[in-house]
Simulated scan of single mutants.
Amino acid sequence: MKPFYLLLLCCVFSFNTKAQNTYNIGTLPTINLSKSLENNWKINFKSEFRQLFKTGQFGNNQTTNYDYVHTDAAIVASKKTGLNNTIAGGFLLRFRDQDIVKRTIQQFTIINRFNAFRLGHRFSTDQTFASNETMALRLRYRVTFDIPLNGQSVDKNEWYLKISNEYLNRFKNKENYDLEIRVLPNVGYVFTDNNKLEFGLDYRINDFVNQSTRQRFWLAINWYISI
Rank of each mutant, 00 (worst) to 15 (best):
Q57W: 01
E158Y: 14
Y203G: 00
N84I: 15
Q20T: 09
R94T: 08
I181L: 13
R96Q: 07
T71E: 04
T27A: 10
N222A: 00
D97V: 04
R103P: 07
N206M: 01
K54W: 09
N132K: 13
D72M: 07
R140M: 08
A130C: 11
C11V: 15
R214T: 12
N150V: 11
D146H: 11
I111F: 11
P3C: 02
N176T: 12
K172Q: 15
Y189F: 08
P3R: 04
N40D: 14
L9G: 14
F217E: 00
V154Y: 06
I181S: 12
N39V: 10
L9V: 14
D99T: 11
V209I: 10
N112L: 10
G82I: 10
N65G: 15
L149W: 08
W223Y: 13
A77F: 05
N40H: 08
Q51N: 08
Y68H: 01
L33D: 02
R113G: 14
T30K: 15
Y68D: 00
A130L: 12
Y68F: 03
Q215R: 02
D193W: 10
Q215A: 00
T55G: 02
R113S: 14
L7C: 03
W218F: 11
K156Q: 06
S47C: 06
V12R: 13
T134Y: 00
Q106H: 11
R216G: 00
K172D: 12
F49H: 02
I221R: 02
Y141F: 12
I163G: 10
P185I: 09
R118D: 07
N186A: 09
T213M: 02
V101R: 09
L33P: 07
T213D: 00
K162C: 10
R216P: 00
V101H: 04
F217K: 00
T109S: 14
F199Y: 08
D202Y: 02
I227S: 11
T192S: 06
L219S: 03
R50P: 04
T22E: 00
I75V: 05
A19I: 02
K35F: 14
Q51W: 01
Q57V: 05
A130M: 13
K2Y: 12
L93N: 12
P148D: 07
R140I: 08
I111S: 15
R204G: 04
D126T: 06
T125I: 07
I147T: 11
A220I: 05
K162V: 13
N112V: 08
W41N: 01
D193P: 07
Y224S: 02
I227G: 13
